[in-house]
C-alpha cells in the first residue's frame, strides 16, 4: 500500500522564557493508506504536539513532512490552510462544533473554506453524511440540542465531508461514557474498513485496541510501534448506526 503520510526526523522545539523545550525530538513515521493508527503516550510525551504538526496546525522546527505527496513542512500559512481543507479531517475531544450552526451547516464548513460553490449537491452530501452517522432526523438541530455522542458523530461527518486523505482524531472518546465511546469507535472502524486512513491520539488501551497499529511515545520520541493483529471490530450490544449503502457511496467517493 502506498504511504499517504511520511515524516522524517521531525522535531519541534519551543522556547519558553529562554528555556528550550524539546516537545518532539526527531520522529520518523510512515502511515500507509487505509491504516488506523493509535498514537499513545503519557501527558508531556509530545503526542499532542506531533498531532498538531501532522494536522498542519503547527510548523516543525526541523525535519520533513510529506502529506499526499506534498512537502508541507515549509509551507506558508495560507498554503497550510489549503492543505487542511483538502487533505485533512479533524475530530476533537470537545467536538468543537459551532454553536450558531445547525448540524448540516456544521458539516458544510470545510467545503466553505475549500472555495467550493455551495449547491444542492453539496448540501445533499452533507445530509447524506449526517444520515451515515445516524443523525438524519436531526438535520436542523443546533449542537446544544444534541448529546455528546451525537455531537461527536456530527464532528465525524464534518471530518469526512471534504473526503480527506487522513482523519486526525484527538482523543475522540475522551469526553464520552464507555457505551457511547464504543459507538464512536465502531463508527471510526467502519470508516477505516471503507478505506479511510485514521490517526487517533488516545491514552486508553481499550480505545487503542480498535486500531490496527499502536505507536507509543515518550519524551518526544517513539518508544514502540506495534501492529495490532486482531483489532476490536465490534462490541456486543453496541448498536450499529452505520447504513451500509451510505458507507458504500462514501467508498465510491474515495475511489473517484
Amino acid at each position: 500500500m502506498a504511504s499517504v503520510l511520511k515524516i522524517i526526523d521531525l522535531a519541534k522545539i519551543y522556547s519558553l522564557e529562554s528555556v528550550l523545550v524539546y516537545a518532539v525530538k526527531g520522529v520518523t513515521l510512515e502511515v500507509e493508506e487505509g491504516d488506523f493508527v493509535a498514537l499513545m503516550g503519557p501527558s508531556g510525551s509530545g503526542k499532542s504536539t506531533l498531532l498538531n504538526l501532522l494536522g498542519c496546525l503547527d510548523r516543525p522546527t526541523n525535519g520533513q513532512y510529506f502529506l499526499a505527496g506534498q512537502d508541507v513542512a515549509r509551507m506558508e500559512d495560507d498554503q497550510l490552510s489549503n492543505i487542511r481543507s483538502r487533505y485533512l479531517g479533524f475530530i476533537f475531544q470537545q467536538y468543537n462544533l459551532l454553536p450558531q450552526y445547525t448540524v448540516v451547516e456544521n458539516i458544510e464548513i470545510p467545503l466553505l473554506y475549500q472555495g467550493a460553490k455551495l449547491s444542492n449537491s453539496t448540501t445533499n452530501r452533507c445530509i447524506g453524511l449526517a444520515q451515515l452517522v445516524g443523525l438524519g432526523n436531526r438535520l436542523d438541530h443546533r449542537p446544544m440540542q444534541l448529546s455528546g455522542g451525537q455531537q461527536q458523530r456530527v464532528a465525524i461527518a464534518r471530518s469526512l465531508v471534504n473526503d480527506p486523505a487522513v482523519i486526525l482524531a484527538d482523543e475522540p472518546t475522551g469526553n464520552l461514557d464507555s457505551r457511547t465511546s464504543d459507538e464512536i469507535m465502531h463508527l471510526l472502524s467502519k470508516l477505516n474498513e471503507a478505506g479511510k486512513t485514521i490517526i487517533m491520539v488516545t491514552h486508553e488501551n481499550d480505545i487503542a485496541s480498535w486500531a490496527k497499529r499502536v505507536v507509543r511515545m515518550r519524551d518526544g520520541v517513539i518508544e514502540s510501534d506495534i501492529r495490532n493483529e486482531k483489532p476490536t471490530v465490534s462490541i456486543e450490544g453496541a448498536t450499529s448506526t452505520i447504513q451500509t449503502e451510505l458507507l458504500e457511496s462514501l467508498v465510491l467517493n474515495q475511489s473517484k
Partner: peptide
C-alpha cells in the same frame, strides 16, 4: 477565540 481556532483547523485562511 475557540470558534476561530475551529475554523482555522477546518481550512479557513487568515483573510477568511
Amino acid at each position: 477565540t475557540r470558534e476561530i481556532g475551529i475554523r482555522r483547523a477546518l481550512g479557513a485562511k487568515r483573510r477568511d
